[in-house]
Design a protein around this nucleic acid. Structure first.
Lengths: 227, 227
DNA sequence: CTCCATCTTTGAACGTGTTCAACTATGACT
DNA sequence: AGTCATAGTTGAACACGTTCAAAGATGGAG
């Protein structure tokens, strides 16, 4: 979902300042939530001026973006274990999705603030935006690994599109998760537990005669709709 | 998406003031978009003080709700024709969805700003929020009419849940629409044209042996996940 | 070393959504 | 008519995210 926040090369000193601002933001986000962590408070915590914080991060949302990048990195790392342990599609998909819920749990409180970016089309932070291409494709690649390492048999047309479709599924789960106020996001975990086997069964049904025709149409629709 | 903003009985004078604030907001939203329409500008345009505007609308977002309500009302009205003309499910669903694209077209330009705020779970503008319950249920009811007036044959469990599922489909189309920069949102119209027949075919497949079991699981999942 | 262009840093100032204590108008009841 | 609680109204004040002109630091060229 996230985009890269300024990947230009920088001096070590500047990079240090930049990191200290991120760290300060992290601490305040964690301790007091998004609203409490004002730009003034973040700047003070980092030992810089407000204007200086804006020199490195063009908005408070870009600061949240840096936060989100860490979640993505942690999720990629946490996904390695289920991808190594599980061999069937069901287990692999479930493992990766639950890993995300685990990794993201500490950030649930202010995830909504970040999610605002997802809906603003003009924002470079939107998961569908040009600027997010790299991060999005990394996430899609993760889903391709889920499929490729599994026992799943698919028609070729669907196999090519499925990683992106699974990424969309994940976006849907994130949407549910953002709205999930249950303790430890238990309901989201239930959703993953229950829906993954259904997805698995549905995908195996796609080779059924009578179903295959519809699947071909869906693949055709995706091709037509893609930019 | 939004709900009715405060349906309590009021004196005619107060109701008049209330309406003049809404009207002023509409004019400014239309002419200059969301950001230009500041609460100060809206209050001045309505001939009241800022504090008075807040007496009637507890936040700027609640004011936007009134805006949403008008789109929704216009859509409900525009849906009557296809619901009267079309008899098959395919035509009814297509007619209602395209009616939405038609009705919403004038607002596409600043829809992104609106939806950005609506995407935040804590926002009253969120289509999933408590405040939006009335509007959401009206929209779901519209989809129930699509089904009930059509020739579609469904298993009972699915029939009960389908209106809400179709509403979710509509939310997905709205998401696509928000990101759609093509002239007159042609791509969204194409999406509707192409996807509705596929949905139709998929629903008719649900009675196929081998598919029905999965459908039952999906219905069970929905029951488990609903609050 | 001197110069100068560029990178970095500052904090006051701006406009925003929102709040609130104080004020006025309304209308029901004596 | 007088009283008084409630509804309605006001605009200054608050805290916030953000901007900007100005100042300071850095480092390479001559």
């Amino acid at each position: 979902m996230a985009t890269v926040t300024d990947p230009a090369p920088r001096s070590s000193k500047a990079e240090q300042t930049r990191q200290s601002i991120i760290d300060a933001a992290m601490r305040l986000f964690r301790s007091g939530g998004y609203d409490q962590a004002t730009m003034r408070a973040i700047a003070e915590e980092a030992g810089v001026s407000v204007g200086n914080a804006y020199y490195y991060f063009s908005s408070k949302e870009h600061l949240v973006q840096a936060y989100y990048d860490r979640i993505q990195a942690a999720h990629a790392e946490a996904s390695e274990q289920p991808l190594a342990d599980e061999t069937d599609f069901n287990g692999r998909l479930r493992g990766v999705l639950l890993a995300w819920v685990d990794v993201a749990e500490p950030y649930h409180e202010f995830a909504g603030k970040f999610f605002k970016n997802a809906a603003e089309p003009s924002s470079p932070l939107s998961p569908f935006s040009e600027d997010s291409t790299a991060a999005r494709e990394a996430a899609i690649e993760l889903h391709r690994r889920i499929i490729d390492g599994s026992d799943l048999k698919l028609a070729k047309g669907l196999r090519d599109e499925l990683p992106e479709l699974l990424w969309l599924l994940q976006m849907g789960i994130v949407l549910f998760w953002v709205h999930d106020t249950s303790e430890g996001q238990r309901r989201t975990r239930d959703l993953v537990d229950q829906s993954v086997p259904i997805i698995d069964r549905m995908l195996r049904l796609t080779r059924l005669p009578g179903v295959r025709g519809v699947v071909d149409d869906v693949v055709g629709l995706i091709h037509m709709i893609r930019p």
